[in-house]
């Protein structure tokens, strides 16, 4: 596996060429991905956008190692995930991927800090040490002293931050989020997305966000427009080349970004 230090910002973290995926067979077969070509750079936030059913979730699942591709080439930080067997693949996800789920999926019976600690515990850290780190990270996300609460006791604005903390606590090289704002109102969705961008973009980390929420397009470095299983446009987002701290000011539409490099 490639050493993270060798991946510099804007180098290609994930490389897809002609990736295909078909669900089912025969009459009822659905060609979800029909040849995806995409380079996801490290140090950037890449959004996958497009109409419902176009294949966004399928694509993000494949590059996060949750789903196998049928054809084409895929290298994630230099690793071809197809070469990993199921348990090795699980270990790869554990070591390399942070997830933010649409419903956040925080376990209600565990405390906030315990939820956040899960990726570290899965990596073999003791619960005590992992929970301590979780408290520290939560504090930097404005959740100081809330670590012992039940997740459902937190406000709607606090829960996404717990999910963000859980996705980042083990410092993954890849962060994937599928529709992270779709369950939130517009204002909260924008704030959460700003937080994701502000906290997660790092030179050695690739961030991939699936969304169809055009109010957050301006927070992308690049936007891949998925249509019918293909990427028919790749545009630079408004946030590209801007310091991550000033992401909240832009309101420009996604298509106005510079460098509209189009792949087909």
């Amino acid at each position: 596996m490639t050493d993270p230090a060798t991946i510099s910002a804007h180098a290609t973290a994930i490389r897809l060429r002609g990736v295909t995926k078909t669900f089912g067979r025969g009459e009822s077969a659905v060609k979800a991905l029909q040849g995806i070509d995409l380079d996801v750079p490290a140090g950037e936030l890449t959004m996958l956008v497009g109409p419902s059913g176009c294949g966004k979730t399928t694509l993000i699942s494949i590059l996060a190692g949750l789903l196998s591709r049928d054809g084409g080439e895929l290298a994630v930080f230099g690793t071809d995930l197809a070469t990993l067997r199921r348990d090795r693949l699980a270990a790869w996800r554990r070591d390399n991927v942070g997830f933010i789920f649409q419903q956040f999926n925080l376990v209600p019976q565990l405390t906030v800090a315990e939820n956040v600690s899960v990726p570290l515990v899965l990596k073999g850290e003791s619960v005590a040490a992992a929970v301590r780190k979780a408290h520290d990270l939560l504090a930097t996300l404005g959740l100081e002293g809330r670590g012992k609460s039940a997740p459902l006791k937190l406000s709607g604005g606090q829960q996404p931050r717990v999910a963000i903390a859980r996705a980042l606590i083990h410092e993954p090289r890849l962060l994937v989020c599928d529709e992270p704002t779709s369950a939130l109102d517009a204002e909260l969705g924008r704030r959460v997305m700003e937080l994701i961008r502000g906290r997660s973009t790092r030179p050695d980390r690739a961030v991939v966000v699936v969304t169809h929420d055009d109010r957050i397009f301006h927070l992308a470095d690049s936007i891949a427009h998925v249509n019918d299983g293909r990427i028919d446009q790749l545009t630079r987002g408004a946030a590209y080349a801007r310091p991550t701290t000033s992401t909240s000011m832009g309101t420009s539409s996604a298509s106005s970004g510079k460098n509209p490099g189009v792949h087909t």
């Binding site: 996800r93 991927v97 789920f101 419903q103 999926n105 990726p119």
Partner: peptide, 18 residues
């Protein structure tokens, strides 16, 4: 009831055996 959390753990890299 807990299947979605088990699913999340599985996605996050917990092995089936665990």
């Amino acid at each position: 009831d807990n299947l979605r959390y088990f699913g999340a753990f599985k996605a996050m890299g917990a092995s089936t055996w665990r």
